[in-house]
Amino acid sequence: MHDETHHGDLLVILRHAPHGSSWLREGLDAALVAAAFERRVTLLFLGEGALALLEGQGVGPMGQKGTAPTLAMLEMYDIDRLLVEERALRDYGLDASMLLLPARPVGATEMAEELAAHSLVLNF
């Protein structure tokens, strides 16, 4: 069943930067599992979560993997609908050339529409 206003099964909102906590990693894990179960997944990088998209991330000093390798796998899982909060790009001085994956900037109105257009929203 295709519905014009339905953008996917699952919207995963990522609000945390890499390394400082496990929120980003555990949020991405939920997205990957849903995609592996053939669900259509959209990712929204909100607030500090926008920093997950920054190019040039490394491992932590104790060898913590971080999340950049997971982001690199998203395409393999057919997760290609990536959104990033416009305001977060502004707040952190980021532009498209600094990001490791293309994400479409969205404003407040569009964010509200995205929330309404998915069957399930998981907020991490």
Binding site: V33, F37, L120, L122, N123
Partner: peptide, 16 residues
């Protein structure tokens, strides 16, 4: 974790 996705999509409401 697949159980979470299944629960969320199968139920009428998921409250976090």
């Amino acid at each position: 974790l697949g159980q979470l996705v299944d629960l969320g999509l199968r139920c009428d409401r998921l409250i976090t």
